[in-house]
Simulated scan of single mutants.
Amino acid sequence: MSLISSQEAIGKLMPQQQPFVLVDRLIEYKPNHIVAGFRVPVEHILVDGGGRLTEAGVIEHFAQTIALHQGYDYFLRDMRPPVGYIGSIKNFEICQLPRVGDDLTTSIHILQQLFGVTMVQGAVKHGGQLIATGEMRTVIAKD
């Protein structure tokens, strides 16, 4: 059961817009945790000619899961979602590239948040199989 699965609602929670959106469901939200989902579509700018989501697509999906967490947090406080950037990637390992039609589930745990910088650890899975794991730091842009 998803908290939010409407493309329109997801679009209001993140600064990313089509055709660059790589999350389609908010499954679980806690102040220090999020689970998001994404079904890899046939037509997407980050799907290669062989029908697989590229490495950049997996990393961007991971980052957008963080953005969704921040956007939902801001929504709960009746604020506009922030624009953010990937600050750094650490110990990120992609075990396999997901195929078109694969339903990804990504769990992110917030390790630290301070002055607009968020450090997380997480994992991307498909049907219980590990797709990717790693740490990422994102930075909220100053207005």
Rank of each mutant, 00 (worst) to 15 (best):
A141I: 03
N91L: 04
G11S: 11
T54C: 10
G84N: 07
A56S: 14
Y72V: 11
P19K: 05
D73V: 04
H109C: 06
A67M: 05
Q70F: 06
T138G: 07
D24H: 00
Q113I: 00
P19N: 04
G11M: 07
N91Y: 01
V42E: 14
T118Q: 07
I94M: 12
L114C: 06
M79G: 04
V124C: 08
P82L: 04
Q70I: 12
S88K: 15
D48K: 13
T54N: 03
F62H: 04
I34V: 15
D48A: 12
L68H: 10
T54Q: 02
V120G: 00
E55M: 08
V23T: 08
Y85S: 13
V100E: 08
T65E: 01
F38E: 09
V117E: 02
I27D: 07
F20Y: 11
P15I: 03
Q129E: 15
T54I: 03
L130G: 08
I27E: 12
P15T: 10
I59Q: 00
E135W: 03
G116E: 04
M14W: 00
G122I: 01
E8M: 08
G50P: 04
S88Q: 10
G71Q: 02
A36W: 05
D24Y: 00
Q113P: 00
K142N: 15
N32G: 09
V139W: 01
A36M: 09
V40S: 08
V21W: 00
P98K: 01
Y29E: 14
I108C: 00
L46H: 13
H69D: 02
E43Q: 15
G71P: 07
A141V: 13
I27V: 15
P81S: 06
Q70T: 12
R80Y: 05
H126S: 13
T65Q: 01
P81L: 03
R25V: 10
Q17I: 10
M14A: 01
Q112A: 07
G51P: 12
P15F: 02
D143Y: 03
G128I: 12
A123I: 11
P15L: 02
Q70R: 13
K125Q: 15
I59V: 15
H44C: 07
Q70Y: 03
S107N: 14
